[in-house]
Design a protein around this nucleic acid. Structure first.
Lengths: 217, 217
DNA sequence: ACTTGACTTGGACACATGACCAAGTCACTC
DNA sequence: GAGTGACTTGGTCATGTGTCCAAGTCAAGT
């Protein structure tokens, strides 16, 4: 096989692991399978990674990075409802476009929760997703010139819980319509939690409506 | 070891498998581990079950049954908000009371989606849960004398998606407060989807508010 | 040219696991 | 109390897997 520096080889192996695991499940990502997928002999894997665990951790990290890629841009001035719809649809479409990867993501999560070898992978995964979602709500707030009646971190958790739940259900029964209907309904609900603010000047202290206790984490 | 009829032994083995798998994960539920947990020699398992797969299927079925046990009774006349809160709290409490079992449930789901040996276990699991949740909303409708502005099967799917998502998040970060806050918020939202009806006489044809398309499954 | 070290190879080893079996043991019935 | 069949035992075997290694190959620097 072609020679290449370790770093590059590692990337190739991680990609191979991701491919195998997406296709055949996390258990199918054996050292041999990954080596075969990369077109490399067995020893190479242990030359580039100390453990199989290290390889899997690298793969999990790649998934986390992949999951926390930003959603497409939303033009400024877009109404809240539309902005929310765009964002949620975008997330949902990337999910149903990569069934294997999505399923793998859950497998990695559960594995990480059982076996300490995978370390804090699951926690990192979720922290990253929550942070991204929160940033997204903040961004939409600015884009659409609205203020949320609920802290955005809480909004983020609701949104991700719902998406997680619906995508699991979709993995099981293959129906996309219920999820889309549900998510659209959620978008409408969230839109009702937005109140317009002056897009030009944003004063520091606006009275926050006390509908819900503002519990910052 | 004590002699007992096959049926009884099978139950014991399924219980042992459930115990091991809840404690150490689905991968830890090897034939040997199950036999040891049940205090039985290796051959017994293969005497009672044709395959390891058959054992796992039986275990998965046991989980499904366990997951679809009815929530506690709600006294008639309870206001919708309270009835919803009782139901959701009840579900949530059984979840956080059995962390291992809940995690195992997800492991079984993902495993079933990968390996055809587990058959339609995941689908059965979800169909059962959806049906129960739908029945629950119907029941609450009767108990609290309200009519839902949204089809109950859709309500059920939303509720279960949310619960799934939150419980996954809880498994990862161990925080119960965000989930409880989120679920209570959902209960309040659902309560807003209820409109009172005459508790005594329920006519067959009531105009259904056309907020959403009524899509029967 | 030659030396050095990074990179690769193929195989070997130990171990866990699922499957299987032949013999043994016990309870129940006639 | 003898026979019958359900139940149990302990062990064996094949397979897949992670880990490791000693030797081989190649590219680059001196």
């Amino acid at each position: 096989m072609n020679r290449m520096p370790v770093a590059e080889r590692r990337e190739q192996l991680v990609a191979a692991a991701l491919a195998v695991a997406s296709r055949e499940g996390i258990e199918g990502a054996t050292v041999r399978a990954v080596a075969a997928e990369a077109g490399v002999s067995l020893g190479v894997v242990h030359y580039c990674f100390q453990d199989k665990d290290e390889l899997l951790r690298a793969m999990a990290h790649a998934i986390t990075v992949q999951n926390t890629t930003r959603v497409g841009e939303i033009p400024p001035g877009t109404p809240v409802e539309d902005a929310l719809a765009i964002a949620i649809d975008s997330v949902w479409e990337t999910i149903i476009a990569n069934r294997g990867a999505q399923l793998l993501s859950y497998e990695v999560t559960t594995s990480s929760l059982r076996h300490s070898e995978l370390g804090q992978v699951a926690v990192e995964q979720y922290r990253g997703s929550w942070a991204i979602a929160e940033q997204l709500f903040d961004a939409i707030g600015q884009i659409s010139s609205v203020r949320w009646k609920m802290p955005t971190d809480e909004l983020a958790r609701i949104a991700l819980a719902l998406i997680d739940g619906y995508s699991l259900a979709w993995l099981v029964d293959g129906e996309t319509e219920p999820a889309q209907r549900g998510l659209r309904g959620f978008a409408r609900y969230v839109a009702s939690l937005a109140e317009p603010i002056d897009p030009v000047e944003i004063p520091d202290e606006l009275p926050v409506p006390a509908d819900l206790p503002v519990a910052g984490e």
